[in-house]
Design a protein around this nucleic acid. Structure first.
Lengths: 288, 288
DNA sequence: CACGCGATGGAACGTATTTTCCATTTATTT
DNA sequence: AAATAAATGGAAAATACGTTCCATCGCGTG
């Protein structure tokens, strides 16, 4: 039933041969995939410009895939579009496929889209409730720190991992407190005045993280807490506290808002430190 | 927000003047109304034919409504289309220019909220473009795997970390391929038939991850790739490929959409495996 | 019925766009 | 390192397309 349009077939063929393509044509391929829905209204020149490529390269691309030229290839996408929108039978088809999918396909996707919705709601809230003063303070705190320790356990560990990774692109010394080998205590030992601890923790709060915050305070290090509310044990032990409320669906707490906040924090810090983009994320062979 | 596009205005004007139009131009008007959504891809000749009218009549029609010719009128519809399909692009453009233009002089919060905007746009796109069939396949693939290996390096490592953490709440055996001690090879060695590898990688693709995918194929393990597009080296080596396009604000590529997708994937899997929420996330003392 | 005005369609014109060709650069192989 | 093949970009050539012009036609009116 899911009849593959010629455009689909073409895209697959492109995907298959992609690696064998020369550099520029790969660029064209990427552009086509990315802008698949608007190729039909674009002219060769526009597409070429979008790829940073000469128009003839686009034509060569089309010819490489068996068309007489760009025009002929474009018509494939045009056809796919008109077949998709104009025929009134598509209503019936769509409904039919929805009904058909309900049995097998729907649950997973239904769950997914509801979860995505919840995450979106979470980001909306984050955008609305971000405390400007605190965020600025958080950036300042990190900007002035010599060493930055990052800590989060279990659910928050992935976030800590990301922050540590991102911070490696600054000049700071960064320490991810992983607890590898059970050595939380040992990894935290060297914190001192002038250093900062980023502690990520949500209820029920991991005791390891709370321990780290106490150590930080004893060692006169600054503490940036990323958590859910001003209440709770983190407030007392932190210099700056950033709030994130995650939306949840299916009794599942999201992490997208937290991730987003942390990335925003890093971007702001990078520019505070006046890193150029190149310094920040050298897109070398080691990037992923 | 619901700003009337120029196309809307034009259509209304056409409706108003319809009665006063000569016979052929009425035919053109009807055609435009009927095929409004595909005018942008049609040529004058096609439209003329569709109306049973000469091409010049269509041009005259356009001129009657104040345009220099058909081309100019068509661009109105084209603009409406592109504005409708890629509104998220404007988000990206905005943050791009914000970051480009002296971000260091602007408050950190400004940067943050732009970044959050971009992330929201990314989630919108994710919700819209999630491939239902593939998502279902991905869930199935994981559901039937005995051992699940998770691999991502550098930027993607945090994601891999999260997935591995989440999967620990299922009955599966989960292996996070961390490369700790330089032992990628050794950690991958034990993959076999009936196992699955989740590989997360974005361009420029980490060679470690590509290596892992090759090993998986050789060992007859299933591969679920999470990446940016069907093109690129991951396509060939994967059984299922899930696409996530992160809003890339300059060199700052988001991770929120990827994170969200992975969480959605896990939730869907959990329900597929009929885990109760309690089993899935025992909110015990070790939770964080 | 004749006149005139607007509507219509054919064909020529001009332009915008695609395509081909070729010189130059870049990568690959021996 | 030289030779060969492939890729690239500029520009000319070809083409397709939209537009304009004009002769013809039809319709309503005097």
């Amino acid at each position: 039933m899911a009849k593959r349009s010629e455009a689909d077939a073409l895209m697959q063929r492109i995907a298959e041969e992609f690696e064998a393509l020369p550099r520029q044509l790969q660029g064209v391929a990427r552009y086509l995939e990315e802008h698949r829905s608007s190729i039909m209204v674009r002219r060769v020149g526009e597409i070429a410009e979008g790829c940073g490529v000469h128009a003839s390269a686009v034509v060569r691309f089309a010819q490489r895939f068996g068309y007489s030229g760009f025009t002929e290839m474009q018509s494939v996408f045009r056809d796919a579009f008109t077949a998709q929108t104009s025929p009134s039978r598509s209503y019936q088809q769509r409904i039919r496929s929805v009904i058909k999918n309900r049995a097998s396909t729907m649950p997973a996707v239904e769950i997914a889209s509801r979860f995505i919705d919840a995450s979106r709601a979470g980001l909306d809230e984050l955008a609305e409730e971000l405390d400007e003063t605190r965020f600025q303070k958080a950036v300042d705190l990190l900007a002035t720190a010599e060493n930055i320790y990052v800590m989060g356990v279990r659910r928050s560990f992935a976030i800590a991992t990301y922050i540590a990774y991102a911070l490696q692109h600054t000049q700071k010394r960064v320490h991810l407190v992983s607890g590898l080998g059970g050595m939380f205590r040992e990894q935290l030992r060297s914190m001192g005045k002038g250093d900062a601890l980023i502690a990520i923790s949500f209820p029920p709060f991991g005791k390891e993280t709370l321990y780290a915050m106490r150590v930080a305070q004893q060692h006169k290090a600054s503490v940036l807490a990323i958590t859910e509310s001003d209440l709770g044990p983190l407030a007392r032990h932190s210099d700056v506290l950033l709030k994130v409320k995650e939306g949840s669906a299916f009794a599942f707490r999201g992490l997208t808002s937290t991730m987003c906040l942390c990335q925003a924090l890093f971007v702001a810090l990078a520019y505070r430190l006046e890193l150029t983009v190149e310094e920040t994320l050298p897109r070398g062979e080691y990037d992923d």
